[in-house]
Design a binder for these strands. Sequence first.
DNA 1: TTTTGAGTTGTTCGA
DNA 2: GTCGAACAACTCAAA
Length: 483
Amino acid sequence: MTEAPIILWFRQDLRLADNPALRLACDSGRPVVLLYVLADAADGRPWGGASRWWLELSLRALDLSLGALGARLVLRRGDPVSVVEAMAREVGATDVVWNRVYGGAAQARDAALMARLTENGVRARSCNASLLLEPWALRTGAGGAYKVFTPFWRAARAAIGAPEVLGAPTRIAALERPPASDRLEDWTLYPAAPDWAAGFGDWIPGEVGARARLDAFLQGGFGRYAAQRDEPGIEASSRLSPHLHWGEIGPRQVWAAAHAASAAGLASERDLDKLLSELGWREFNHHLLAERPDLKDAAFKPAYEAMPWRSDPQGLAAWRRGRTGYPLVDAGMRQLWTTGWMHNRVRLVAASFLVKHLLIDWREGERWFWDTLVDADEANNPANWQWVAGCGADASPFFRIFNPVAQGERFDPKGDYVRRWVPELAGLPDSLIHQPWKGTAAERNRAGMEPGDYPAPVVEHAQARLRALDAFKNLTPPSTDSL
DNA sequence: TTTTGAGTTGTTCGA
DNA sequence: GTCGAACAACTCAAA
């Protein structure tokens, strides 16, 4: 007769280190059933294509790490509440533990599961593995949620202190006869034909890859982070976003490692502050999502719902395919399509272009990013789109319209980034790389370009800018006290 | 309750 | 070429 097992329900916490729910399960001394549930479409927002690709590889990596400890992952598919409940019954578990997912539908679902398990006499507990603070932990003096980043982050830094980091378990007691598992291949998360993920190869999904990525960053880009993280042609950003999203590494680990690296002289105080504030934006976005579970659907500032967005299928298609005629925008959109990721600075320019130059609803862009980004996140993606569109919390003023040429010349001065992702422009001189339409036929010819290689701009910048200013200005009702 | 200072990432124009 | 101001008002957070 074996002891009753405890179920660990893996979610967006696909790691062994600093995993409080896993630690709870292992410390119980009882056999652990390690469960992952692929939710069906009825449960919240279905994963996008790039996310599914990542998930398959991350689950493989997790299973491998667990295997080294003599355990294995059990895969099931369906409505998570029913699946977890059924599993508890199947193995006779008296305990279920998990790390919380902080999303729109997830919280209600967790509450439902907890109630159901409790009814069945099963003890259910959840932990926080993915955020430095609970998203509802901080309140303003008036008791509301923060809507401006700076005061939020000031309060957050004071509350965070020095977060504790848990080590990985050294052993996991397995059940003698673990429950049956789905075969990962049968989930067909990975694209078969065509394999559009062929260019995703730089990523190493999983905890080992996440740790390697963090270490490489701390040794390399960290010391240039504040100065150069805005330059897409240079490797100075951390590229941790997908690893953090899937919980292959947690923010507490990044926090601690960054402080240690900074103390060891690998980066300045400024670099450290900048990196921490990026973690801060991640916290802030989750704080906003907790406040507005419908963040991906509804403008944070309701006045923006009156915006007369244009219907422009051709413009949208050109944007998605990276054929707007603006090299920096196109380079970004192609990097996204090819690698599942886009540099942060270029995301701003590309998103601004869709919303301001094309006047297309930010939700269209949010959906495209959701499908194509390996770091597509329920909090970060909509919050950042809303910020760019002007309808978000603490958003940029509407008259701040990025000039894709000026941004290119400022942040990609030598055109390295554009040349990498828009190779048909590679032969152009630096002076034309961000505005190829200014080149003469002879110059294009000298650059090895054929007519039609690269499209003319879909909109003219100055005109589009004025159109956007006009449209956004009309959103704010005219003041009533003027004669 | 009222007041006050401030607010991630920009662009353009004119001196 | 460089610099400062204008761009529009509004809302937030704390005193």
